Simulated assay, not measured.
Amino acid sequence: MRAYMTQWWYLINHRAFLLLLLVINIFGTVYGYYWYGSQLANTEPIFYIFVPDSPTASLFFCLVIVGWLLGKHFKLMEVLALITLIKYGLWAVVMNLLTLAETGELDRMGWMLVASHFMMAVQAVLYLPKYRFELWHVMVAAVWTLHNDIIDYLFGQMPIYRVIHQYPSEIGYFTFWLSIACIMLAFFESRKREYLQRL
């Protein structure tokens, strides 16, 4: 089992694999910003940065991968990528499955969003041992993440899903606690790393 895990870790950290992952994330990021085009067209400029949540999360991860390929750790980008990839990855999966439960159907685009966003969360978790962020990076990322929730659910800048307009309070509440869970994961990872360094 240990040999298998070693081989797996070697594979996903191989330069060729990281380059492939970077290309995939660049494509997803560009498409994500395009997907938000119609919403951004009706958004006040002051909110632009807070609207395209998922593509911004994958953009963070693109910068992380670039750092790794250069032999560096962009620590703030690492924790922002970890928190937001898991948060918005799982959030989109839940929203689309809720749409399926409400309407009884989900088109091909919906299933594509389920698959792609689930893989966003998976890739963030896969690289947990590779991140090097510290506690202060987590605190900055927490402010960004919770501030984004405030902009989304108090200023109405959340992604356009019919189910959100049906259950705005419930989804806002769910999103807040999803943010907290992702922040706590990053917090415990930073604490665990500091503990191991002291041994």
Rank of each mutant, 00 (worst) to 15 (best):
I46C: 03
L90H: 03
L63T: 13
L11W: 11
L85I: 05
T43L: 04
L100C: 03
S58N: 14
M77L: 13
W8H: 12
L70S: 11
L20H: 05
Y48E: 10
V79W: 09
H73L: 04
N96T: 05
S38K: 12
Y48M: 07
Q39V: 01
M77N: 13
V51Q: 10
I86A: 09
K87S: 12
T99S: 09
W8M: 13
V94F: 05
I65K: 07
G104C: 07
E102R: 12
N25P: 08
H73V: 03
G67E: 08
F60C: 14
I65N: 07
N25C: 10
W35V: 04
I26M: 04
V66A: 13
F74Y: 15
W35H: 12
L19H: 15
L80F: 09
L21Y: 02
E44P: 00
L22W: 06
F60V: 12
V64T: 10
V66E: 06
K72P: 01
W91S: 04
V23K: 02
L80T: 04
Q39E: 10
V30I: 14
F17K: 10
Y10K: 13
Y88L: 05
T43S: 10
T29A: 14
M95A: 07
I49K: 02
F61H: 04
L22P: 00
G28R: 06
F17H: 04
F61L: 01
L82T: 06
L85D: 10
P45Q: 01
L63I: 14
T43E: 05
M77T: 06
L21M: 06
L20G: 03
Q39H: 08
I83A: 03
M95E: 10
M95Y: 03
L70A: 11
A41C: 05
T56S: 11
K87H: 13
E102L: 11
G28V: 06
Q39D: 01
H73R: 03
S38Q: 14
L97K: 03
F47T: 05
E78N: 06
F50R: 03
I46S: 00
L63Y: 13
Q39W: 01
F27A: 15
I86G: 07
A92K: 11
E78W: 11
T84N: 14
M77K: 08
V51P: 09
P45A: 01
W9R: 14
Q39N: 07
F61S: 00
H73N: 13
L97V: 06
S58A: 12
L76F: 12
M77V: 02
V66F: 12
Q7C: 11
I49W: 12
G104W: 00
R15G: 00
P52A: 08
I65A: 04
L85N: 05
Y31G: 08
F50P: 06
N42F: 12
V51H: 10
F50S: 07
K75N: 14
E78C: 07
F74W: 15
L80Y: 07
T84V: 04
L90G: 02
G71Q: 00
A92E: 02
L76Q: 13
G28C: 11
V30R: 06
L63S: 11
G32I: 01
F47H: 04
T84I: 01
G67V: 04
